[in-house]
Structure formats: C-alpha cells, structure tokens
Design a binder for these strands. Structure first.
Length: 472
RNA sequence: GCCGGGGUGGCCGAACGGUUCAGGCGGCUGCCUGCAGAGCAGCUAUAUGUGGGUUCAACUCCCACCCCCGGCUCCA
C-alpha cells in the first residue's frame, strides 16, 4: 500500500476528504450501472471508465476492492423497447446486457465482483418496501402504487443540497399526474397498469414492478452491507436518484448508507451536449466501426479529470491515439534494449516518477498530473536508450514499472516478444536487406510497402532491421 | 427564478499568490537516417473571457460584467 493517503472529493460535503474505509484495507464500492435498453453511449462510458480508474487506483494502493455494478433491466424504457419488438422483457434486456459486457471488454474495464440485475432481486426489494411502510416512511397512493413520503425523512436533500420547500415550484415538476400525495414523493413500487403488459410481479405489496431507486438501495445493501464505502455515478444521478437511495436506505436501517459519494461530470461532444438531434450521439460501437482504437477512446475518456466536463472531439481522439502510441512504442522499445547501463540514474528516475504519479493519483485521481509525470519519465528514459545507456536488466525493471502503471491506466497492454513472423515475410525481409546492401532503394522500398500490406512493419535501426506485426 | 461548475498557447489539458505555464497532440527547424519510422534537442511571438480592485507580487484572492455547461423528479 502506498504510504500517502487517498484524497477524494465527496459530494456529500463538497470537499476533498481523506479516504478511510470502514474496514481497514478493504473498499466496498457501488457503481451505478447501465439501463439495458440500448447500446451504451460514450457519455455512459466516460462514467464507467472513471469508476474503473477509481477501482484500479484503490487496487494499486493495496485495497481489496468489492465492486457492485447494478443492471437496470426493468423500467419504462426497457418495457417500451421490448413491446415495440414484441419480445419478452428478458429477451430484450439480455441482448443489450450482452452488448454491454462486450463493450466493457472492448474498453478494457476490469470486471466488477457483482453485476446484479434488478429483476433478479424483486423479493429483496419487496421486503425493503415493506420495512419502509412499517416504519411509516411509505404510503399507498390512490393508484395502488407505493410512494416514499420525503417529508418524513429529515435529511432529505443532504446530498444534492436542495431544499424540499424549493423543490415544489420547480418548473419541471409535474403535479398530480399520479396518485401521490405530494408531487415530490417518489415511487417505491409501481402498481401494474395495462401499458406494462406482461411485465409485473405478484407480491405481498401488490401486483406491479419496482420503482427505479429501490433497486440500488436493495442490491447495494445485499452485496456490500448496510453502510458502504463509496457510491458513484454521473452527476445527473445526484438528484433525484442518489438522494432517494439515501432516503430509502437510511430510513430503513437508521445507518449511514454511503460514506463517500463520487460523481463524474458529463461528456460533451464537439462542445455540445450529446443528443441524437444534434447528430453527435455516439455509442462505442459507432466509434470502433469507424476504425478508432478502443485504447485511444479509453485514453481520451480517462485523461481528463473526472469532475471536469470532457469535450469529446475527433481531433482529440486522434491526439489520444498518438499519445497511446507513444507509450506503446516506448514500452516495446524497452524489450529490445540492451545497452551499457546507467546505474543510479535509472533508479532515481523510477523513484521520482512513482512518487509523482502516486501523489497525483492520490489527490482525487488527478490523472493529468500523473500522466505528465509518466511522459516526463518516458522522455528521460528514451534519451538514456538513445545514448545506449540502459542495460537489458534496467530496461526490464522499467518495463515492469510500466506494466504496474498500466495496471491503472489500461491503455498499453502486454507485448508478446515471440510473435511468429510468417516465412514469406521473413524471406521478403531477407531480400530487402540484399537490395539495401546493393543500394537498390527502389526494390527495398517496394518490399517494405509489400510487407506493410501484410501487416508487417519494418524499421531500420543502427542495430539492424526490426519488424513487428501490426494487427488491424 | 433558485443553485452549482467553468472560460488557460493552433487544439486538448494541469497548476497556483512569487523559480521556465506541467504534460499530451499538432506545426516548424536541427540531429540521426539512403528514404521512412522511432527517438532526442530547440522553436511555436507579450496564455490565463472582459473591466476594475487588493497586494511588493494574481492565472491564482475580491467586485462587476460577458459567454459556455449543468442541476431544480427521463438522463452516466
């Protein structure tokens, strides 16, 4: 574990706080996941990548992380979607859930320990709703739905810093649409109506389906306990979603629900809010289909501090790709290095970069500063290699360090040194060398182009010709 | 209307009351190279939305204004 401590910005207090987990050395985190009604878009992934970075940083620091990411597979959008396609809710959400898991892998997100689905936790939700009714926090509305009476929860608004009284005149509050007593109350359990079709559960509290917020309270407590260390999601979830989760959970248990609340800012695309009507709405698949490298996308989403709005542009994506290439090229070069050795200097540089990287990340995941430290290091070590002053053994140490950093960043990946060169490529390289010896540059360049077509990249260096296979 | 966040070089993006404005990307020049690639070195004019103020010193603090983004029960 790193000696210095992790500082995180807690939305609850609106200040940076030292992270002290409930249980020494363990971090229990709940990260709000996707509603599986469509392919997730890059805005969603900005948040998921942030949550991944958080998780990886905690692990780097030696914490045993238990992460829960919920899967919302029953709500208005999923029900409507399934109905449009005339398939069951499960069939519909399974499809998008599978796609989500594929996307997670594409973006190199570490797997959470649990991905609970709302529909698989109905009994637990029902019992939480019952508990809230027994304690007098919930009531049944005229329509048969069960609502949470926010006036009963004295701390309502503590996360979003909204005052109940000021919620009322809000322009977007639809009054009297349902059978709630107060427009601001929210549904714990929605009574079945004909638009729900076959989607309902017959339970002790009636025929219907759960409200949105109850799943998170229920599943967080089931897998992580009544008080969790960190809860996170996009800023848009602060209100009402997270506020309501607090109200439900804390009313039921009388205990603090989550100690640290972390929220990531939104992503803009070309300076604008991402929306289908602006034509700037992208899923991960849209981008990979255009040929963009997932590692570059990950880097771009990662490289801006999570509490800063991130402006996603194709120019930026191009830049991200080049930055990732620089790290990759550097790391690969380490494997081929066999110089004289520089002794103390490399140790000093390694100590320095680790110190800077860790200090930056510990400060509320200040990734920009951490990356700056990393790139400084890359430049310094490149210079050592240029001067033939890095030994094989030293290069191996640096390579291990790069892998350690990449365990956090997830953009470089391992290099396989013993990739097989196809025999025909080997033959071409031999021919090209002959041509070069004879200073027949035309033939040499032709063969180089030919190899490139085959996906074999040739580089002439003072140490002889080097090749690598570039998969596409 | 109420409440937040932000405006930094060609682009992205840190920092902070005071050493060179970090780092990345792009462009240019040089070194290396048959060329290319990679790398290194240097350059990219007086950067911090505007106008005031505080201070020996402000991008950093204060005031006003302009603009952008967001929250105020769909939303990552």
């Amino acid at each position: 574990m790193t000696k210095s401590e992790i500082i995180l910005f807690n939305t609850l207090t609106r200040r940076k706080e030292k992270f002290v987990p409930l249980k020494n050395g363990e971090a229990k985190i709940y990260t709000c996941g996707p509603t599986v009604y469509d392919f997730a878009h890059i805005g969603n992934f900005r948040t998921f990548v942030f949550q991944d970075l958080l998780r990886r940083w905690l692990e780097y620091c030696g914490f045993k992380v238990t992460q829960v990411m919920n899967i919302t597979d029953v709500d208005d959008k999923t029900i409507i979607g399934a109905r449009k396609r005339q398939i069951s809710l499960k069939e519909y959400t399974d499809y998008y859930l599978k796609a989500f898991f594929e996307d997670i892998e594409t973006l190199n997100l570490e797997k959470a320990e649990f991905y609970p689905r709302a529909t698989e936790h109905i009994p637990e939700m029902v019992s939480l709703v019952k508990r809230l009714m027994e304690k007098g926090y919930a009531y049944r509305g005229e329509d048969g739905s069960i609502y949470y009476d926010i006036s009963k929860f004295k701390n309502y608004g503590k996360l979003s810093k909204l005052k109940i009284e000021e919620l009322k005149p809000g322009a977007r509050v639809k009054v009297d649409e349902y059978g709630k007593e107060e427009a601001r109350d929210f549904a714990l359990w929605k009574a079945w109506d004909k638009d729900d079709g076959e989607v309902f559960w017959d339970t002790e509290i009636g025929k219907g389906r759960p409200g949105w917020h109850i799943e998170c309270s229920t599943m967080a407590m089931k897998y992580l306990g009544e008080t969790i260390d960190i809860h996170s999601g996009g800023v848009d979830l602060i209100f009402p979603h997270h506020e309501n989760e607090i109200a439900q959970s804390e009313a039921a248990t009388g205990k603090e629900f989550a100690r640290y609340w972390l929220h990531s800012e939104h992503l803009l695309v070309e300076g604008k809010r991402m929306a289908k009507r602006y034509g700037n709405f992208y899923t991960l698949r849209d981008l990979t289909a255009k040929g963009y490298d997932p590692k570059a996308i990950r880097y771009l989403l990662l490289s801006t501090h999570y509490r800063q709005q991130l402006n996603f542009t194709f120019e930026g994506l191009e830049a991200a790709k080049n930055a990732v290439d620089r790290l990759k090229t550097f790391t690969r070069r380490l494997l081929e290095t066999d110089g004289k050795g520089c002794g103390e200097e490399i140790r000093r540089l390694m100590t320095e970069v680790q110190r800077r990287f860790e200090e930056a990340m510990n400060d509320d995941l200040n990734i920009s500063v951490a990356l700056a430290a990393l790139f400084d290091f890359v430049r310094d070590v490149n210079r050592l290699m240029d001067e033939n002053r890095l030994s094989k053994q030293e290069a191996e140490m640096v390579y291990s360090l790069m892998m350690k950093f990449d365990k956090v960043l997830g953009v470089v990946g391992e290099f396989k040194t013993e990739e097989k060169l196809p025999t025909e490529a080997a033959e071409l390289i031999r021919k090209r060398e002959e041509a070069r010896k004879a200073k027949d540059w035309v033939t040499a360049d032709k063969i180089r182009a030919q190899l490139r077509e085959m996906g074999v990249i040739i580089e002439d260096t003072p140490q002889g010709v080097k090749w690598r296979i570039e998969k596409r």
